[in-house]
Amino acid sequence: MKPDLSVRIGKFDLKNPVMVASGTFGYAEEFAPFIDLKKLGAIVTKTITVSPRLGNLPPRTCETPAGMLNSIGLENPGIDKFIREKLPFLKKLGIPVIVSIASIDDPGEFTVLASHLDKIKEVSALELNISCPNLHKDKLISQDAKDTFELVSLVRKLTQKCLITKLSPNVTSISEIALAAERAGSDAVALINTLGGMSIDIDKRTPKIGSWSAGLSGPAIRPVAVKMIWEAHNKIKIPIIGMGGIMDIQSALEFFIAGASAISVGTANFINPRASIEIISGLKAYMADNNMRDLSGLIGSLRAC
């Protein structure tokens, strides 16, 4: 029996539930030498803003125990250049393209971005990045249920496209924020973005990252992500796209069992460009071994011990 890996996320179907996370896959062409991009369930682009951004002061990355810090600061060419120069390659792949978008100074920037992208049929969904930890803000939109509700409502009015709201783990209650996104009309939530973190060079007594603080990712944050997905899964009805330190099929399965309908491979792309493809084959094998016809028997299948 050949298992059916397809899954529906809001308004669109994925042929398999393995995506690549925003900011870890460039605009896909960077990975063309290493994998057959057409095999991916979906691609989430690097976050796009209205105006081009230079990004944060280097050094921008450093390794940490079983993880890494990054503070790129949403370096991107801006929406116009993205549509002109980066989107044509993505359109040709024939797989769902999810464009990650963010505002810098004013949430109103989301309206500009959403109205530009609403007209492009090859864009399957918009991921609302309201959880980037590297913009030197006192508070992120996704750290407040009311702000999250208002932002998602604002974009919801402008586009019929599938909306995925990406949430920060730096909150007291993830399910409260996930519920706010759901009530405002988000089709799905993506969790988790990176955790705020910092690392210090003890010889120089300086931060190891140019912008001082950064976002922590990699296997180190996986248990945090799994718990948040489980919590949100118990409270919301819309699908969850799970991510946070997924390196291989074993770690991906934890996310499905906790309640994720799809997963995103992030930091693992940096280390093993083939990680996402290996997870797709691993998932097929696991489902066949466990007599699963489709993903419904796997998603949220967590039992008491």
Binding site: F31, L54, P58, R60, E63, N70, N269, P273
Partner: peptide, 22 residues
């Protein structure tokens, strides 16, 4: 030399300042 996460131009982590930007 610079710390790199990916080495293939995807993470934008290893930038250096030039006359035409990072």
């Amino acid at each position: 030399e610079e710390h790199m996460a990916c080495g293939i131009g995807a993470c934008l982590g290893c930038v250096v300042a030039t006359k035409s930007g990072y």
